[in-house]
Every structure is written in C-alpha cells, then in structure tokens.
Write a protein that binds this DNA or RNA. Structure first.
Lengths: 233, 233
DNA sequence: GTGATCGTGTGACGCGCGTCACAGGCCGCG
DNA sequence: CGCGGCCTGTGACGCGCGTCACACGATCAC
C-alpha cells in the first residue's frame, strides 16, 4: 500500500448529487491510497471504521471460515463504496476486503462520512438504495444455498456471468477473461473440484466451450433450463 | 384483515427522533390495519411499495421456494419496520410477510416514507443502521450455510434462542414457548425430521430437556462447544 | 364418541458432493 | 534448461442428510 496525492473524486454514483465544489472539498478530506492486487484493505479483525471509495481497479469482499475456506460475498468495481457498515453502526467489521488488481481508493473516517450523510439527504438516499441492493442479493444467495444443489449453483453463477458478458452474433455469450474455477467456487460455496466437473459436464453436453481466451456459453437457454427446473421442483 | 381507527404511533425506535407533534401527524397519514395470525401482509408477487410499522404482535419475513419449502428470513416484533426495500429502490418485493399472531400495523406509501427520510436525517440514519444490521445477519447466515452442516446449524439456532431466553438460577436457559420444529427448520434451512433428531440427540446427552411448557437448555456451554468446534475446523 | 389436523418420533434408503490423492499443463524465474 | 507455483482434470471413498413412509399422541369440531 502506498499513499498518493489527492486527485478528484469523480465517477462515484453515490456522490452524484453533490456540487463539484462539495466533491472537491470531500476529495481533500480523503486519504488516498494505492493497493497492489491481493493486498488486504480491510482486515475483518481490525477495528477501523473508515469508509472507502473505489477509484480505479476493483475489490473483493470475503469472509474466511476458520478452516481457511474463502467465501466471496461481493466484488466492487470502480465507483463503488465499501466499509459503510462499520461506519454506520459502529460495530466491528463483518468481512475482509482485498484488492483484486491494482486499485486506488479514497477513504473517509466514519465521522466525516456520517456528516456527509446528515448534510446531504440525496447521498443518504443513494446509500440506502445501495444497502437495499445488498440485502436483496444476500437474500437471493440464501435462497440458492437453501434450495439448489452445488452443481446447480454453479449453473446459476454461470448464468449470472452471461448477463454481463458480450454476446456473439450467433447468440453465444463470451465470458472473458476466463473465470478461475476457485473463484466461482468461492462465490457459490463449493469446491474447485466440483466446479471443474460441472464445467466438463456442460462442455460434454455442448452447452459451453472453453476457448483460448474466453469461456463461451453456446446455449444460454439450455443453461437457464438447468437452473429453473430445479429451482421449481 | 380489518381497517382500524388511528391510534398513536409510539414505541417505534426508528421514529424516536421525531417530535411528538410530527409523530402524530405521521400517525394520521398512516393506514392502520389489523391482521389475524397467518394472514399475508405482503405478497412477494404483489407490486405495492408501502412501508409498514409493527404496532402490536409480530410478523415473519419468508421466501417460498417454488417447491413449497418455506425459508424464514427474519421475525419482526412490535416496534419494527418492514417493506422498506421496495420503497427505497422501487423494485418488486423480495419476500412475503405474514402475521405470526394477531398483529396491527400502520403503513405509509413509499412517497410519504421517502419524504420523512429526506426531511429527518436522524430517521434516515436510524434506518441505515437497521439496514446494516440486516446485512450483517444475512452475512452470518450465508457463512453458516456455507460452513456448517445441517445439525450444527440447528445447534447454532438453539444457541441464539438461548440469548433471548430467561435464565434459571442454575444457569439453565428456558426457551418458551417451545419452538415448533418446523419453524426451526425454516430458519436454518433443513427439514423438520433433522431438527427432531438433533433435539433428541441433545436430550440423550443431557444438554436439553423438554418440559411441558418450555425447552430447557441444561448445558449452554456444551452446546456452544458443539457449534464452535465445527466452525473452527 | 369419531374423524381431521397438527406436531412429533424414527427407521431405511440412497445419492450428492466434499475430501483426498495424484497427474498433467502452463508460466515465469534463475 | 530444470524447478516451483498456479490452475486444471479425474478417480475412489464415504458420510451427511434429505426423502419417503409410517406410527403415536394431543387438540379441536361437531
């Protein structure tokens, strides 16, 4: 981690409703830092309360079970916020956060952040919308964990990846870069081995194909069917 | 469900920071209703956006898997709020809500609620703290679902029930009324049968005892050990 | 009373998937 | 070049727990 000089605080949807003067003042109040990929930004067991904005790069929110298994809760890319929970309620951090690639972040103390929320209702509302989203996603994940088997959860995750992937003219979805099996496993709470087996089953059924630089979902429809037929019975 | 006349809006922590005049005005803006136990208050597939305050009684937030399995997300008792997510982000409801016993609720439209949040930063902050709590609880549940086996989840739930139960002089925890097995099952995502088996194992080990009117946890320590030893390995 | 409904208890079956173990491919580094 | 580290692939084993099936008691309606 290296401290850096203070650039402008732009491209953060949460702060859209501030005037550019207010944003500049806030930027000066921030501490700016740069992290290398893999570096911890928040340690679950630390008791800081700071709030972070992702300026460039991306971070991953994870919990580690005591057995060392990693559970990925969320990925947050440039423009996002993290660390708000501890700032809001004063409790210890609930998860750890690490940089995915090289990442620069700007941070505020809890007090500064709360002041912004108090002074700017629109920012407060935007934050509430974000919290609401997180709750919805968590609920969906609890549902999946409760009703789907491990391999169907992999299917579901693949389907989610399709949504954000480029479509080819033929209707295929090209997921790039190729996701690392253990990352998928951490997202859906299973093992690397299971992910590998599922992916191979799917490629045997000609539903996905592994190219050199992308994972291609050939038949999104059929993949969707695999998920829904189990969700529904 | 029956419509009722408008009483006062008291005992809602979320609204503590309002003056009593403001609270009275808000009370008049609410629709007041009474539901019998088991009645649906929010249907997951409806597209209302109203926000509800629980005045007396309690409600349960649930999702149903399409196979009919019920997954309990949260119980909210008098003084609580529910239905905020849809009001905040305008998306459809993410869960259903039913009355647990006879329950009276007061509701606001999304617009009215958002106006309160905008005009009263302290209410907004209180709501954010509540959302933060929900997120933390969800995270803990995801962790449990990912790392604990079904019977350990039952142990963990029992332990949680102990926290809110009365202690006897001998240090036992008397959980009353006796929880229905299928309710526990819905909370920890397992089956009624598994809960019954776990409970019997525990009573064989003299860790719990089933009295006529209460479930008594004789050895809270040992129960805690059962959970932690697995969480940790 | 009788029947219905709800909560509980328990045995047997079986398969999903986590775990362990090992092999091969690819890459960067000295 | 060979070595070590990361990612992937696959076989074998085994047990946790969901599913089905059935029985018993308690409560309530009538």
């Amino acid at each position: 981690m290296t401290e850096v000089a203070t650039p402008a605080l732009v491209g953060i949807p949460l702060l859209d409703s501030l005037t550019s003067d207010e944003r500049d003042a806030l930027a000066r109040a921030c501490r700016w830092k740069k992290y290398a990929g893999g570096e911890q930004i928040i340690d679950r067991s630390s008791d800081s309360r700071d709030v972070f904005f992702v300026i460039t790069g991306a971070v991953r929110v994870v919990i580690y079970s005591l057995s060392g298994r990693e559970i990925a809760l969320d990925d947050i890319s440039a423009g996002g916020v993290f660390g708000e929970l501890a700032a809001l309620d004063g409790s210890p951090r609930s998860a750890s956060v690490m940089a995915i690639g090289d990442t620069t972040v700007a941070s505020l103390t809890a007090e500064q952040f709360l002041r912004v929320l108090r002074d700017h209702p629109d920012v407060a509302l935007a934050l509430m919308r974000r919290l609401a989203r997180v709750i919805r996603v968590s609920g969906a994940r609890i549902l999946d964990l409760s009703t789907l088997g491990a391999n169907n959860r992999v299917h579901a995750d693949l389907l989610a990846l399709c949504r954000t992937a480029k479509r080819t003219p033929e209707g295929h979805a090209r997921i790039r870069p190729i996701p690392v099996h253990s990352d998928i496993a951490a997202r859906v709470s299973t093992t690397r081995e299971t992910v590998a087996r599922v992916l191979n089953d799917l490629s045997r059924q000609k539903i996905v194909r592994r190219d050199a630089d992308a994972l291609v979902v050939l038949d999104v429809e059929r993949l969707r069917d695999l998920v829904e037929e189990v969700r529904g019975e």
